[in-house]
Design a binder for these strands. Structure first.
Lengths: 216, 216, 216, 216
DNA sequence: GATGAATGAGGGTTCATTCAT
DNA sequence: AATGAATGAACCCTCATTCAT
C-alpha cells in the first residue's frame, strides 16, 4: 500500500508535445466521424487513451480543440501545396502542381478534409477561421491568374479576378468533397479534371474572351 | 372579466396549413441563424408565435422539421430556376436565365440558402437529401453541356461531362455562399460573373480544347 | 356552401349510453395492450372513433376512465361468478361452480383481466379500488369456508379464516395470470386444478388438521 | 476564504461502489413509493443525495436502473431463503424455514418487495425478469413437493405438480402483499399461516386425496 | 353535440466542464 | 501529472387537458 513501485510502463508520461499530437489525432478522427456536435469529449479522450481533464488542460475547450484541429490540418495542407507549387514556375505548371498536391492531400487525409471543410462550414463559431483559410487560397489563385494575365499584357480589375478565383476555389472544394466521399476515386485523375476545367477557363481569360448578358 | 369584447387578436386559432407555413418560416430563420444543432425547438416555437407541442404535432421531430424546411426551400428554388430556364431555349440562353434565377433566389432568400446548403452539408443525417438535390442540378447542367456539344457535332464521355458539371455546380454554390454573406452584393452581377466563368469554359469545351498533364 | 343537407349517416349521433360503451371497449383494449401509463388518451379516442374532448365529456379524466373500466369489468366478472354459484348449493359445489365461472370469464376476457388486475395492482391510484374488489372476493370465500366449517360443528377465528381465504384468492389470481398469458390453456382444466388445490386444503381444515411450528 | 478547514462533510466524493448502493437504496425507495412511471429520476437522484447525471453514469437508463433494483432485491431475497432452507432437511422443515425467511425478508424490506412484485408485475418491460424469478421459485417448490411424494412412493405428473406449485407461490405472494401493506402484521405469524395452508394441502397430496369435477 | 387547435408542465437524457484527490 | 467523481444547464419530446368554433 505504501511502497508503490515507480516503474510505470515506459510509454507513459510522454512529453507534452507528443501527447498533444495524440489528442489531435484522436480529435480529428472523432470529429470527422461524428461531426462537431455529435462528437463527445468523452469519446475523444477515450480514443486518445487519456483522461478528459488532460484534454482540457492541454487543448482547452471543445471549440478550441476543434480550432486546433483546423489549424493543424489546414497548415499541413497549405504546406503540401506550397511545397509543390514553387512560385518561380510558369502559371499553368504551378496551378497543375498545386492542384495535384491538393487532391493528393485530400485523398490521403480524408479525415482531415472532413474536419476542415465539411464540419467547419456548418458551424458558425468556425465560419471565421474557415473564411480566413479560404481567403488565403483565393488570394493565391487570384495571384496566379493576375500574374499570367500581366505576362500577356492584359489587366483585369481585382474584384473580377477575385470572383473568378473564388469560383475556381469553390469548384475545387466541390470536387474535393466528391473525392472524399469516393474511396475508390483516384486523386490524380480528379486533379487532372479540375485542371482541365480551370485551365480552359483561364486560357479564355488570357485571350480576353468574355460573355456579356444580352440586352434586356 | 366584465363584458370582454370578442375581438380577440386575429392571429389565434389559425387553420393548420397557415400555421405550418408560419412554423416553417420560423424554422428556416432559426436554423439559418443558429445552425441545426444550436437551434432549439423552443426558439423556433417562440419565433413562430406558437407553443412547442404544436410544432411536434404538425411537423414532427427536429430532424423531420429540418427536412421539411429543406424540401420547401429546395422546391421553391428549383421552381424559380425551372420557371426561368425554358427547355426550348438555346443552351447559353438557358444557362444564363437559370443562373440569374438561381442567384436571384439566393439573394432574396439568404436564410433559405443557408439552411439548404450550409447547414445540410455538415450534418450527416441530411447528406443524403442534399446529395440528391445536387445530383439533380448536376444532371441538368450536364444535360445542357451535352446538348450543346452534340449540336456542334462533338461528343464527350459521360463521366467527363459529369465531373465538369460537378465542378460548375460547385463553383456556383461557392459564389452563392459568398453572395449570401455579402448583403450589399448584387445577385445579377454575381450571375454574370458566374456565367462568364462557366460559358468561357463551356465554349472551350465546344471547341475541343483540352489540357493534358505534362509527361511526368 | 350554405345549404348543408342534414342527412348525416345513420350511425352517428348515437345515444350517450352506446357511445360510452364504445369508449369503454376502446379504453379496455388500449389499457390492456399498453398499460395504464403508456396508454394515451389519443389512442383511446382514435380507437373509439371519436374525438378526445368527447371522451373527457363523457368519462372524465384518464384516471376516472380507468376506474370506469375497472368497474365495468369487475362488475361483469362478479356477475358471472354470482350467477353460477347459487348460495343454496353445498359449499364444494358452490366453490367449484364459482371457480369455473371465474376462470371461464378470465379466459374469455383476457383483456378485461389484464386491465383489472395486472395494471391496477401496480398503479397506486387504483390500489384502493382493487383492494375493495379483492376484499369482496375474500369475504365470499371466507363465508363459504365458515359455512362449511359450521356445518361440521367446527369454528375458526375469523382472522384465521380471512388469511386462509386471502391465500386462496391469491392462488386463484396467480393461476388466472398464468391463464391470461397462455392462449392455448384451457380454463376448465385450470379451474379443476385450482379446485383441487383449494379443496384438499379446505377438507383438511374441515377435519381440524393443523400444522404447528416446531418449538424453536 | 481564509484558512478553510479541510474537514469537508464526510459524504462527498465517495467511491463508486458506495454511491451505487446509495443510488439503489434511493431508487428502491422511490420506485416503491411512487411506482415505476410516476417515479422521477430527479427524485431518485435527490433522495440519493447526488446529481442526476451520476445516476445515469453509474446505473444507466431509468429502465436499467429499475432492473438493477430488481436484481439486487431479488438476489437478496433468494439468498435469505436459500440460506435458511438447507437442501438436506426434510421437506416440511425446508418449507417452513423457507417461508419464515421469505416473510421475514418481506417484512424487513417492504420497499424491496413492492419494487420486486407490485411494480414489476404491471410494467410490461419487466414481465420477463419477474417471470424468470417466479419460475425459479415455482421450480424449487415443485421440487420439494416431488421429493416428498417420491419419499412416500407416490408420483405425480410434472405438469400437475407445477400448477400446484404455481398456486402455492401465488398464495404466498398474495400474503406477502398483504403483509407489506400491514405495518403492524407479524411476519412469523404470516409464515405460520401460509405454512398451514401449504402443508395441509401437501399432506393431502401425499395421501393421494384428489378432487374430481362432478360428471356434467 | 362535436372537434380541430392549442398549451402548461414535466420527464428522461446528454454533455461540456470542473473539483478534489 | 493525472484522474475518478461530480454537476448545472439544456434540450428533445410527450401527454393530459382545455378552448373556441
Amino acid at each position: 500500500m505504501l511502497a508503490r513501485v515507480s516503474s510505470t510502463p515506459a510509454f507513459k508520461r510522454l512529453p507534452r508535445a507528443v501527447r498533444e499530437q495524440q489528442m489531435l489525432d484522436a480529435a480529428v478522427k472523432v470529429f470527422s466521424r461524428r461531426g462537431f456536435h455529435a462528437a463527445s469529449m468523452d469519446e475523444i479522450a477515450d480514443d486518445a487513451g487519456i483522461s478528459k481533464p488532460m484534454v482540457y488542460a492541454y487543448l482547452g475547450t471543445k471549440e478550441e480543440l476543434f480550432v486546433a484541429c483546423l489549424h493543424r490540418e489546414g497548415t499541413r495542407m497549405m504546406q503540401a501545396i506550397a511545397g509543390a507549387a514553387a512560385p518561380d514556375l510558369p502559371a499553368d505548371e504551378r496551378l497543375w502542381r498545386g492542384l495535384r498536391a491538393f487532391f493528393g492531400f485530400v485523398g490521403a487525409h480524408r479525415d482531415g478534409w472532413a474536419v476542415l471543410y465539411r464540419q467547419a462550414r456548418g458551424e458558425q463559431p468556425f465560419a471565421g477561421e474557415l473564411a480566413a483559410m479560404r481567403a488565403r487560397m483565393v488570394e493565391v489563385v487570384a495571384g496566379m491568374l493576375d500574374h499570367a494575365l500581366r505576362a500577356e499584357g492584359r489587366e483585369v480589375a481585382e474584384a473580377e479576378l477575385e470572383v473568378v478565383a473564388y469560383a475556381l476555389v469553390g469548384a475545387t472544394e466541390s470536387l474535393a468533397d466528391w473525392l472524399a466521399d469516393h474511396a475508390e476515386a483516384d486523386p490524380e485523375k480528379t486533379a487532372t479534371r479540375m485542371m482541365n476545367v480551370a485551365w480552359v477557363g483561364a486560357a479564355q481569360l488570357l485571350q480576353g474572351t468574355t460573355w456579356r448578358p444580352p440586352a434586356a
